[in-house]
Design a binder for these strands. Structure first.
Lengths: 191, 191, 191, 191
DNA sequence: GATGAATGAGGCTTCATTCAT
DNA sequence: CATGAATGAAGCCTCATTCAT
């Protein structure tokens, strides 16, 4: 994962600065400075600023992915699996607001335009988990007969909106509120 | 609204360019060119690029606002009013993808960080409509007893996700599918 | 020709600096400074440094061209025409050493690699003059039956070498010496 | 000559890269790579890039020198010696186009500005050979009474022009054509 | 008011050179 | 001796903004 210390310092600095100020307001020189390396050093690890932005997205998506799978209750009832995902998802992002800010910005900028959904949800790994979950639910007549994308949107769209509001300080989410929101999401998709 | 012809030409050009390429990839010179005015002219109408970005947001939010209110069934049952809003909302954005792209970008960039929610929904005007709607619903025990922000997220979060997917070409939304999605959203918020 | 004052200031400054220090040792900033304009201004007239280098070559080649033709004794005997060209050629370059230095550098750098000969001699206009001259000479059995390129090299190659030597201070060419050299060149090509 | 294997690898790589792309488009890192050594290693053999450029010139000039002398018909008639030199000269450069490209670039760049003529011809060794040749020719009234530089230019200037044209693909020189060109050069210098 | 040429600060990137291993 | 990661000065270029016309 971490090919070197400097590389991860750069990644860390970039993520912070990008999240705080936006891609184009985060000069390479400043990223370097915060990472504690020389400007030129970044280019040993990333071909260009764009590559840094993209690589960052890759890494964060992987991390998100891994998080969602942690303790994923394979083989357990659909409902339980659904609640696992919808618990981990906001939990992680609220704990890592930089990650959320970065991703949100990425997916709505020209960079992320070619990436699907809130791609977080569609990494090779998650892809299957989610597709399986929703397809299975439809087959078992537990979930509404809607395309997977729609089910996905119903399940995670509200969470994303809320997480943003929380991070920006417009709400103060607590465990209980999130719980009730997830249940409402379930109501949205269940038959 | 339109103080002059040139002003609206500029606004139009800016909106397009911002939506297509992103804020920082849309040079003032190019905006001017597309608007058919000289570069300096923009500065007669907007103090700086930032002001243009912000003003644009203002105008678009107003337009969105107006759209949602068009034919708003005041006095009619809650459910009906809810379905009015959730019909107009995607209808408008799908018809005006530039608007969506612009807004999405704005709200996830440092510019929009101080603006609430998907602010579309919280303009002075809409604010009341929505608050009223949700508060009333809660009072009448029709809707779940959740904060307005949460209800808002449950109602519009999925639509926003889906509209993005549609505009980027990941789904092909039709009237029917949207209808069913809106119903699912209703399931999410109703008691 | 001169679309504006600034443009020719830039061209002048660039020519000097390029000739004096070489292309890559002449920073745009310095060219701007010597031209008395801001760095960015150069880019209103030339797309990039490369374009400046190339445009400069174009302009100088044209100028050279025009010089060679000044008073060209059309219709007069071959020998006379030959001596006209070989008189003007060193005359001009010795009077404009920057031009020579620039051109020499250009034709031996990656830039000029695609340009023919000491291209000076092969501009659309000169091309004909020279080709005609040499072809006619061959037809009339006045000149040796050698390809035009070879005749060209025999006629101008020595002059180029000498001009360089003169400009760098290794010889001190005077009218008389040049005259005798041109005669020797004539001996080289004549039958 | 070869103090070590690495040194000559570096020299070889540098010559190629310089000839192909020009001095300033040949990064040290790339030279190192092609030479199969580490970037830092070059600095054990050459103080700086400039030193490498200069040393290269030195080596090539020596090689050229040696070539011209190979089988030099000492004591034989002037004409014969002249034809020896003018045969070896293009022969070598056509067989070693990198050498030609490198030299041409060098002599027309700020580096070579202090080096005489097409210096190839004025190395300590050649210097004498050529001076002797031309001085002797003048004394014997075989050659024109012109300065040595001029005679040199008349003898080699055309060849240099032609070799360039050949290497860049504008002519296709063969033995016969070169022969006739050399004879024309002789006509230029002979009385 | 409108124009658009000019400005110049500031961003991204390259690359000769160093130095700890 | 060799390595190659790291450095950071310096170059090219963009673009928001100004201002004389």
């Amino acid at each position: 994962m971490k090919r070197s210390n400097k590389r991860s310092d750069i990644v860390q600095a970039a993520q912070e600065l990008f999240a705080e100020r936006g891609f184009h307001a985060a000069p390479m020189a400043q990223i370097a400075k915060r990472a504690g390396v020389a400007a030129g050093t970044i280019y040993r690890y990333f071909e260009a600023k764009d590559a840094l932005v993209t690589a960052l997205h890759e890494e964060l998506a992987d991390k998100m992915c891994a998080t969602l799978r942690e303790g994923y209750p394979v083989g357990r009832p659909l409902r339980e699996r659904f609640f696992h995902l919808t618990r981990k998802f906001p939990q992680y992002l609220i704990a890592n607001p930089h990650h959320f800010r970065y991703m949100a910005q990425y997916y709505h900028s020209p960079y992320g335009i070619d990436d699907r959904m809130y791609g977080l949800l569609e990494k090779p790994g998650n892809q299957e988990i989610l597709s399986n979950l929703f397809e299975e639910g439809k087959a078992q007549k537990i979930l509404k007969d809607l395309p997977v994308v729609v089910l996905c949107s119903l399940a995670f769209g509200p969470l994303i909106s809320l997480i943003r509001a929380h991070i920006l300080g417009f709400v103060d989410l607590d465990e209980a509120l999130i719980k009730r929101t997830r249940e409402a999401c379930w109501d949205a998709i269940k038959r």
